[in-house]
Nucleic acid binder design. Structure first.
Lengths: 110, 110
DNA sequence: TTGTTTCATTGCAATATTACGATAATAAGG
DNA sequence: CCTTATTATCGTAATATTGCAATGAAACAA
């Protein structure tokens, strides 16, 4: 039905899945990578860089902002976006923990 | 239009986004975490453990398999699933690289 | 004020995802 | 062969996501 049954999972599982979802689109990956390289940028730059319409970029920026991954500061008529270091560190830690939890099992099936 | 314009992004960006998407659902996170703990399991166990219908679990397992994150071995009438260590290591490396690329910028906007 | 620039929001169409009942498919035991 | 057990697939309904044209909102300059 397109509706995730989030009530049957733990908060941690829902949160982790939400974090993945925030980065589960090439445009948002591209925005993040551009922000890492340029340190900061405005909407217009991304429109030129990525080749998506301005409302589309704006929407992706909104999702990244909702996820806490970026922050936007109004500067005159434009908005300066950059990575939010605190949330970034949280993502890094949580993702790292997930992958570190698996210790290459020697007794798999088969 | 619900259709991602993947042709305007790099292969790496599309691939990384696809990797995130494979884990962007709490059920798939739960399955992976269960596999880490139990080392291996069959569909029926997950149906009991997660409380989703059998076809739903089967579908999520299929997506994880398509992503290369898990492998399934037929054992009699059931199928034994476990984590695929090789792809797991790739994910770990790629995710790690993404997050390591950002070096806490001191000169953000604002 | 009027115009310009820049970004956000709205509204919509097209496609994707999620979930499950019903039904196949396969293997094992009689 | 028939039955049971287990998983995969099909079909479908409900919801979510993606993308953009049109429009709105805010800051600035003249």
């Amino acid at each position: 039905m397109g509706l995730t049954k989030s009530e049957i999972f733990t908060d941690k599982q829902n949160k982790l899945a939400g974090m993945m979802k925030a980065l589960a689109h090439p445009a948002r990956i591209a925005i993040i990578q551009y922000l890492i390289k340029a340190n900061a940028c405005v909407n217009g730059q991304l429109v030129e860089e990525l080749g998506l319409a301005q409302p589309t970029i704006s929407q992706h920026l909104k999702e990244l902002k909702n996820a806490g991954l970026i922050q936007g500061t109004i500067e005159g008529t434009s908005v300066c976006y950059c990575i939010e270091p605190k949330t970034w560190a949280v993502y890094q830690k949580e993702f790292g923990a997930l992958f570190a939890a698996y210790r290459g099992g020697d007794s798999c099936c088969g």
